[in-house]
C-alpha cells in the first residue's frame, strides 16, 4: 500500500507527487506519458510567473525530472476506477489494482461532451477500455475505435492482434495502424443501436460495429469515481483540496477555472501537504480516513 496515489501527470499531479515525497510519503504517480499532455505542445507560455516564454515541453521536462529526483514512482497507465473501501482507496489502472491511504485526482479537464448515443449504450457495445473489454470481441467481431487519446493507435493495434476486426475513426488521419485496420476520418459521430450497438455513424457513413471503443485522454470524474460531488463538471473541493469522498483530494484543472499552470502547481502542492498531514494525524491517532 502507498501513502499517496496521484492520478494525472500534468503540473498539478507532478507538484503533488514532489510535495508528497518531500513529506516523506510513498507516492505512486499514475498517468499517461507526459509527452501526451496538451501542455507539452504549447510552444510558449507567457503567464507563468518568473519564466516568461518557457515552452510546455521544457516546463514539463523540468517537473518530471524533479519528480524523478524526488524518487516518485511512476506508473504509465490510465486509471479507470477509484473506490474508497475500509479507509483505503483502491485504484484500477491498466491491468493493475493499487491501493493507498490517500488519492489525489489531478486528471485535468475532461471534455464533458459525449457523443449522441454514447451514454445509453455504455456497456451494451460502448466501452472506454480496450484492455478491459477487448477480449469480449476477440472472435472476429467488428469493433470501431474512436481515437481521441494519444495512444489510441496502440490500443487499436492491440484489438487487431487479439483477433478483432478493427476500424479506426479519428478527426485527423492516423499513422502507425497495423495492416488490416481501416482508417476513417470523420468529425460528427453518433452511436447507433437497438438492444446493443449496431453501428457508428461517422459523418455520412455508417460503420457496422459490434463494439465501439471511445478512447479519450482522461476519464470523466463521474465515471472514474461515481458519487464524487461535481459543480458544472469541475470537482468540488474545499480549501484543503478535499473532495466529497473522504481520503480523496483533487487539484489542478479538474477543480475548475482558472485553467492555469501556477494555480495547478499550487493546488497540487496544497493537496499533497494536506494529505500528508492527515496521514500523519491518522497514524498518531490510529484511526482511518473513514
Amino acid at each position: 500500500m502507498y501513502d499517496i496515489i496521484v492520478i494525472g501527470g500534468g503540473p498539478a499531479g507532478l507538484a503533488a507527487s514532489i510535495n508528497g515525497k518531500n513529506r516523506n510519503k510513498s507516492v505512486l504517480l499514475c498517468s499517461n506519458d507526459y509527452r501526451d499532455s496538451y501542455l507539452y505542445k504549447a510552444a510558449r507560455i507567457e503567464n507563468y510567473p518568473g519564466r516568461p516564454g518557457i515552452s510546455g515541453k521544457e516546463l514539463l521536462e523540468e517537473l518530471v525530472n524533479h519528480a524523478k529526483k524526488a524518487e516518485v514512482e511512476f506508473l504509465q497507465e490510465k486509471a479507470f476506477a477509484v473506490i474508497s473501501l475500509d479507509g483505503q482507496i483502491y485504484v484500477s489502472a491498466g491491468d493493475k489494482v493499487e491501493n493507498a491511504r490517500r488519492v489525489i485526482l489531478a486528471i485535468g479537464m475532461a471534455s464533458p461532451n459525449k457523443f449522441p448515443g454514447e451514454a445509453p449504450f455504455l456497456g451494451r457495445g460502448v466501452s472506454y477500455c480496450a484492455t478491459c473489454d477487448g477480449m469480449l470481441y476477440r472472435n472476429g467481431k467488428k469493433v470501431t475505435v474512436v481515437g481521441k487519446a494519444e495512444n489510441s493507435v496502440e490500443e487499436a493495434n492491440y484489438l487487431n492482434e487479439i483477433g478483432c476486426q478493427v476500424t479506426f475513426v479519428s478527426d485527423k488521419p492516423a499513422f502507425g495502424l497495423k495492416e488490416g485496420i481501416e482508417s476513417v476520418v470523420a468529425k460528427r459521430l453518433e452511436v447507433m443501436g437497438k438492444d446493443a450497438v449496431t453501428a457508428l455513424k461517422a459523418d455520412d457513413r455508417e460503420i457496422p460495429s459490434d463494439g465501439i471503443f471511445i478512447l479519450r485522454n482522461s476519464v470523466a470524474p463521474s465515471d472514474l469515481l461515481p458519487g464524487l460531488e461535481l459543480d458544472g463538471g469541475a470537482i468540488t473541493v474545499n480549501r484543503r483540496m478535499e473532495t466529497s469522498v473522504p481520503g480523496v483530494y483533487a487539484a489542478g484543472d479538474c477543480t475548475g477555472r482558472p485553467l492555469q499552470i501556477s494555480k495547478s502547481l499550487g493546488e497540487g502542492q496544497s493537496a499533497a501537504l494536506n494529505a500528508a498531514e492527515s496521514i500523519d494525524l491518522e497514524k498518531k491517532e490510529g484511526k482511518s480516513a473513514r
Partner: peptide, 12 residues
Amino acid sequence: DWCAPCRLMSLV
C-alpha cells in the same frame, strides 16, 4: 480475470 476494474467490483 483480465479485467482490473472487475477486481475492484469484486471487493465491493
